[in-house]
Nucleic acid binder design. Structure first.
Lengths: 225, 225
DNA sequence: GCCCCGCGTTGACCTGCATCAATGGCATCG
DNA sequence: CGATGCCATTGATGCAGGTCAACGCGGGGC
């Protein structure tokens, strides 16, 4: 189905999710319907996305920034179980409450829409389900990769894997050309520790070690491979 | 769509996957078509399922036994990233080679069918895709739970989580009634170690500790909560 | 019968990372 | 501009779990 450019909702015109994200599965008509039901929002670092009542009933696309998905143990121990970058989709279909909480790691902008609308469209448009399946399978692959990192790597290897992961997601062009990537770390030391199953101190020590060995450079909390 | 009992392929009549597994999404006609293309096989403990050439092109349902999904690091370190019990589905849609190898942890019986058939049916029958999406999301939840275990728990807690996981999967009725469950461990100490990110020795020590403390009983490699 | 081999257990020792504690930079605020 | 609080760094110390090594048990082959 072709569409003229003016039938495209302005909201979506420059949106990454329109192509690489879940919205790519929709036709022009569905897209504008979804756009009508959706709204943009900006969340500053540290605030929770879902779980704070008015958001439980919605799904979102990440437009910019990084969202961390965390699980907390009774005694306060925390583990980050996933990071979502643009244009990923946030929200758990087919289950009312997810045992996972989603928090903005950086300032995040979101395109959110009601669960009900999304679920109706899933029924009408199998392509959408296909997209979601693909993303779920990709996330599953990521999660399993990370299990190897958590279970079988040393602190130094964990830090290295983490830096690579971020580099690939923030600065894909440089990573592909495999020359020095440079970016701001989207996570605090404490987030990194929670992601890697380490303590803040160990993260800090490993980073200074990499810096002293000349592998990376750090200014403030920013760096270069 | 109703169906008379004799239209049901004999293969599927007593199959768990017919109800709880992916085949539940198919109608009678599709089911018999898939049954015609599929074949049963029995794999003894330790053998690989996928990756050994003739299997790469197929998907399978687990009918009995336990399949372990492993990833291996260059230096031989291994991590089990998932366990599949009946009536789970094994195989990675939309990707030719998965970086994961699937091995029988116990003797396993499988119902296997060609990728091509399955993928055609996915296009014809959106319900099937929906089932797969649900399973993928459930596996994602499991994987993320496990990340917490790997990243943030002590050896003793890891062993406990593992025993619970197995109890829930092997003997769900006893686990639900939350009274002592009893079962054969489907994994060797070395598998358990690979699953938990520990060494064989630590696994063994923690198990004997639980035994001495009277939490579990062990005969051979079988036990009671 | 004996030997071998894979699996599990147990002990002695060592080390990588956690823990505890002190300090410094930087931002926000009254 | 000192006070407060958060984040990061660095050092000193301890311990959980890894490493190395020895041994026992059961099963299969011959």
């Amino acid at each position: 189905m072709r569409q003229t450019s003016d039938s495209l909702p302005v909201l979506c015109a420059s949106c990454e999710a329109r192509h690489r994200g879940v919205c790519g599965a929709l036709n022009a008509e569905q897209l504008s319907e979804l756009a009508r039901a959706s709204h943009l929002q900006v969340i500053e670092a540290g605030r929770e996305l879902v779980g704070d009542t008015e958001q439980v009933e919605s799904y979102s696309n990440v437009l910019s920034g990084v969202v961390k998905l965390t699980k907390t143990l009774s005694n306060g121990r925390q583990q980050i179980v996933g990071l979502q970058f643009a244009p990923d989709f946030v929200g758990r279909p087919f289950r009312d409450e997810s045992p996972i909480s989603a928090t903005a790691a950086t300032t995040v902008s979101l395109c959110s829409f009601p669960k009900a609308t999304m679920e109706r469209m899933m029924r009408e448009q199998p392509n959408l389900e296909n997209r979601l399946l693909r993303q779920a399978l990709d996330e599953l692959d990521d999660a399993r990769d990370w299990m190897v990192t958590l279970g079988r790597k040393t602190a130094a290897e964990k830090i290295a894997s983490f830096l690579l992961l971020i580099a690939r997601n923030i600065d894909p062009k440089a990573a592909a050309a495999d020359r020095p990537a440079s970016f701001d770390l989207p996570l605090t030391r404490s987030d990194i520790a929670d992601f890697l199953g380490l303590t803040i101190e160990t993260v800090s020590r490993q980073l200074t070690k990499l810096r002293i060995d000349g592998i990376i450079r750090i200014e403030n909390n920013r760096r270069v491979t």
